[in-house]
Protein backbone atom coordinates (compact mmCIF):
# COMPACT_ATOMS: atom_id res chain seq x y z
CA UNK A 1 0.00 0.00 0.00
CA UNK A 2 1.47 3.36 -0.80
CA UNK A 3 2.03 5.84 1.95
CA UNK A 4 -0.50 8.34 0.59
CA UNK A 5 -3.34 5.83 0.89
CA UNK A 6 -2.07 4.66 4.22
CA UNK A 7 -2.09 8.17 5.68
CA UNK A 8 -5.49 8.81 4.15
CA UNK A 9 -6.83 5.68 5.83
CA UNK A 10 -5.38 6.76 9.15
CA UNK A 11 -6.87 10.21 8.61
CA UNK A 12 -10.38 8.93 7.86
CA UNK A 13 -10.19 6.44 10.71
CA UNK A 14 -9.11 9.02 13.27
CA UNK A 15 -11.70 11.57 12.12
CA UNK A 16 -14.55 9.07 12.50
CA UNK A 17 -13.28 7.69 15.80
CA UNK A 18 -12.84 11.21 17.10
CA UNK A 19 -16.40 11.97 15.98
CA UNK A 20 -17.78 8.94 17.83
CA UNK A 21 -15.83 9.91 20.94
CA UNK A 22 -16.90 13.53 20.70
CA UNK A 23 -20.59 12.67 20.37
CA UNK A 24 -20.23 10.31 23.34
CA UNK A 25 -19.21 13.24 25.51
CA UNK A 26 -21.30 16.02 23.98
CA UNK A 27 -24.44 14.63 22.40
CA UNK A 28 -26.32 17.43 20.68
CA UNK A 29 -29.71 16.20 21.85
CA UNK A 30 -30.15 16.27 25.61
CA UNK A 31 -32.38 13.22 25.29
CA UNK A 32 -29.59 11.16 23.75
CA UNK A 33 -28.35 9.83 27.07
CA UNK A 34 -29.84 8.93 30.41
CA UNK A 35 -28.34 7.64 33.62
CA UNK A 36 -29.73 4.49 35.17
CA UNK A 37 -30.36 5.34 38.82
CA UNK A 38 -32.19 3.55 41.60
CA UNK A 39 -35.32 5.25 42.96
CA UNK A 40 -33.78 5.37 46.42
CA UNK A 41 -30.63 7.05 45.15
CA UNK A 42 -32.70 9.61 43.24
CA UNK A 43 -34.93 10.53 46.18
CA UNK A 44 -31.97 10.87 48.54
CA UNK A 45 -29.66 12.78 46.24
CA UNK A 46 -32.14 14.78 44.13
CA UNK A 47 -30.14 14.23 40.94
CA UNK A 48 -31.10 16.74 38.28
CA UNK A 49 -29.71 15.20 35.07
CA UNK A 50 -31.72 13.06 32.67
CA UNK A 51 -32.49 9.78 34.34
CA UNK A 52 -33.82 6.31 33.63
CA UNK A 53 -35.66 4.53 36.43
CA UNK A 54 -36.95 1.02 36.61
CA UNK A 55 -39.61 -0.37 38.88
CA UNK A 56 -43.12 -1.61 39.32
CA UNK A 57 -46.32 0.41 39.07
CA UNK A 58 -47.79 0.41 42.59
CA UNK A 59 -51.16 -1.30 42.70
CA UNK A 60 -54.04 1.15 42.58
CA UNK A 61 -51.81 4.18 42.14
CA UNK A 62 -52.65 5.03 38.54
CA UNK A 63 -54.62 8.26 38.34
CA UNK A 64 -55.75 9.52 35.00
CA UNK A 65 -56.76 13.15 34.77
CA UNK A 66 -60.48 13.63 34.09
CA UNK A 67 -59.97 16.60 31.82
CA UNK A 68 -57.09 15.24 29.80
CA UNK A 69 -56.89 11.50 29.46
CA UNK A 70 -53.28 11.67 28.36
CA UNK A 71 -52.22 13.17 31.69
CA UNK A 72 -51.40 10.43 34.16
CA UNK A 73 -49.89 10.08 37.62
CA UNK A 74 -48.69 6.89 39.24
CA UNK A 75 -46.35 5.67 41.93
CA UNK A 76 -43.25 3.79 40.91
CA UNK A 77 -41.93 1.24 43.38
CA UNK A 78 -38.46 -0.15 43.46
CA UNK A 79 -37.88 -2.31 46.50
CA UNK A 80 -39.24 -0.24 49.38
CA UNK A 81 -38.57 3.13 47.74
CA UNK A 82 -41.50 4.92 46.13
CA UNK A 83 -41.72 7.91 43.85
CA UNK A 84 -44.57 9.82 42.21
CA UNK A 85 -44.30 9.88 38.44
CA UNK A 86 -46.06 12.15 35.98
CA UNK A 87 -46.42 11.04 32.37
CA UNK A 88 -48.54 12.76 29.78
CA UNK A 89 -48.18 10.98 26.50
CA UNK A 90 -49.79 7.96 24.90
CA UNK A 91 -49.44 5.08 27.32
CA UNK A 92 -48.22 1.71 26.08
CA UNK A 93 -50.76 -1.10 25.96
CA UNK A 94 -49.12 -3.06 28.73
CA UNK A 95 -49.08 -0.19 31.22
CA UNK A 96 -51.20 -1.15 34.22
CA UNK A 97 -51.07 -1.90 37.94
CA UNK A 98 -48.13 -4.11 38.80
CA UNK A 99 -46.49 -3.73 35.40
CA UNK A 100 -42.75 -3.52 35.22
CA UNK A 101 -41.82 -0.23 33.61
CA UNK A 102 -38.78 1.83 32.69
CA UNK A 103 -39.33 5.59 32.71
CA UNK A 104 -37.01 8.26 31.39
CA UNK A 105 -37.19 11.90 32.34
CA UNK A 106 -36.24 14.39 35.02
CA UNK A 107 -36.80 14.79 38.75
CA UNK A 108 -38.52 18.07 39.61
CA UNK A 109 -39.60 18.99 43.16
CA UNK A 110 -40.47 15.56 44.40
CA UNK A 111 -42.14 14.41 41.19
CA UNK A 112 -40.48 12.51 38.39
CA UNK A 113 -41.62 13.97 35.07
CA UNK A 114 -41.22 11.25 32.48
CA UNK A 115 -41.30 11.71 28.74
CA UNK A 116 -40.65 8.08 27.87
CA UNK A 117 -42.36 5.06 29.34
CA UNK A 118 -41.50 1.52 28.33
CA UNK A 119 -43.18 -1.59 29.62
CA UNK A 120 -41.75 -5.03 29.90
CA UNK A 121 -43.63 -7.98 28.47
CA UNK A 122 -47.00 -8.84 29.96
CA UNK A 123 -46.85 -11.20 32.87
CA UNK A 124 -49.20 -13.52 31.15
CA UNK A 125 -46.69 -14.43 28.46
CA UNK A 126 -43.72 -15.05 30.62
CA UNK A 127 -45.44 -15.97 33.80
CA UNK A 128 -46.25 -19.16 35.60
CA UNK A 129 -48.54 -21.74 34.20
CA UNK A 130 -52.13 -21.50 35.37
CA UNK A 131 -54.14 -23.93 37.35
CA UNK A 132 -57.41 -25.29 36.14
CA UNK A 133 -59.41 -23.24 38.65
CA UNK A 134 -58.16 -20.07 36.96
CA UNK A 135 -60.08 -20.84 33.85
CA UNK A 136 -63.57 -20.10 32.79
CA UNK A 137 -64.91 -22.60 30.32
CA UNK A 138 -65.97 -19.93 27.85
CA UNK A 139 -62.37 -18.86 27.58
CA UNK A 140 -61.43 -22.27 26.33
CA UNK A 141 -64.16 -22.28 23.74
CA UNK A 142 -63.11 -19.16 21.90
Amino acid sequence: MNSKIFSLILGVLSVILFWIGWVSFNPSDEKAMARFVSVENLVNNKISSRIKLGGIVKNGSIEISKSNQLECFFVLKEGSAELAVNYSKTRPDLFKDGAEVIVTGEYRDGVFVADELQTKCASRYEGDLREESNYKLEELET
Binding site: V23, D29, K31, A32, M33, A34, R35, F36
Partner: peptide, 18 residues
Protein backbone atom coordinates in the same frame (compact mmCIF):
# COMPACT_ATOMS: atom_id res chain seq x y z
CA UNK B 1 -19.98 2.84 37.96
CA UNK B 2 -22.71 4.91 36.30
CA UNK B 3 -24.85 2.99 33.89
CA UNK B 4 -25.61 5.43 31.09
CA UNK B 5 -27.84 4.29 28.29
CA UNK B 6 -27.96 6.00 24.93
CA UNK B 7 -31.06 6.49 22.84
CA UNK B 8 -31.87 6.97 19.17
CA UNK B 9 -30.69 10.62 19.04
CA UNK B 10 -27.18 9.43 19.91
CA UNK B 11 -27.10 6.82 17.16
CA UNK B 12 -28.67 9.19 14.66
CA UNK B 13 -26.13 11.88 15.40
CA UNK B 14 -23.19 9.52 15.02
CA UNK B 15 -24.40 7.58 12.04
CA UNK B 16 -25.93 10.32 9.89
CA UNK B 17 -22.61 11.74 8.63
CA UNK B 18 -21.06 8.28 8.36
Amino acid sequence: GDKISVGPPFFNQINTPI
